[in-house]
Amino acid sequence: MYRKQDKPTEEFSDHRRTTQAGLARKIPGANTYTRSHASTDPAGETPSCAGVAEPTFENEPAMTDGFASDEAGATVADPANFTEEPRTQVAIIEEVRII
């Protein structure tokens, strides 16, 4: 997710923690919803991406059903309120745990 430039960082984080998380909790079949917030790197540089949101599902049919729901529609539509939409992307990934 890329924070809208006119949104202060704290307001962006608060929206993700309250509104966005509240919507995500309602997605049918979602096992988890993890938010990762970007921080400065070891050189003190601020990354362009402000954070990542990651819902997980038991399997692909559960994900398909979950994302077909009105609750997921509301969750996916909400970032228009606080992110730079053209830069924010959705990616379907398969986790491969190494450690």
Rank of each mutant, 00 (worst) to 15 (best):
M1V: 09
M1N: 07
M1Y: 07
Y2H: 13
Y2T: 12
K4Y: 02
Q5L: 09
Q5A: 11
Q5N: 10
Q5I: 07
P8Q: 09
T9K: 13
T9E: 13
T9Y: 03
E10K: 10
E10C: 00
E11H: 03
F12R: 03
F12Y: 14
S13F: 05
D14T: 09
H15W: 12
R17A: 15
T18K: 14
T19G: 00
A21T: 13
G22M: 02
L23N: 04
L23W: 03
R25C: 05
K26C: 04
K26P: 00
K26E: 10
P28G: 01
P28Y: 02
G29C: 06
T32C: 04
T32M: 04
Y33L: 08
Y33Q: 08
Y33F: 15
T34Q: 13
S36A: 14
A38C: 14
S39E: 12
S39D: 10
S39W: 10
D41I: 05
D41F: 05
D41V: 04
P42W: 05
P42T: 05
P42V: 07
A43Y: 07
G44V: 07
E45P: 00
T46N: 10
T46I: 10
T46E: 11
P47D: 04
C49S: 11
C49K: 05
A50D: 15
A50Q: 12
A50E: 12
G51C: 04
V52R: 02
A53I: 08
P55H: 08
P55V: 03
P55W: 04
F57I: 03
F57P: 04
F57V: 05
F57E: 06
F57R: 05
F57Q: 07
E58N: 13
N59P: 03
E60L: 13
E60S: 03
E60D: 06
P61N: 09
A62D: 14
M63N: 02
M63D: 04
M63A: 14
T64P: 00
D65L: 08
D65H: 12
G66Y: 06
G66W: 07
F67N: 02
F67C: 10
F67P: 00
A68C: 02
S69M: 05
S69K: 02
S69A: 09
S69P: 03
D70W: 00
E71R: 02
G73C: 07
G73R: 12
G73K: 14
V76H: 09
V76P: 01
D78M: 03
D78F: 07
P79N: 06
P79M: 06
P79S: 07
P79L: 05
N81L: 11
N81K: 14
N81P: 04
T83W: 03
T83A: 15
T83Q: 00
T83P: 04
T83F: 07
T83I: 05
E84P: 01
E85H: 02
P86K: 11
T88R: 04
T88I: 12
V90C: 07
I92P: 00
I92R: 13
E94D: 10
E95W: 01
E95F: 06
V96W: 11
V96G: 04
R97K: 15
R97M: 11
I98Q: 09
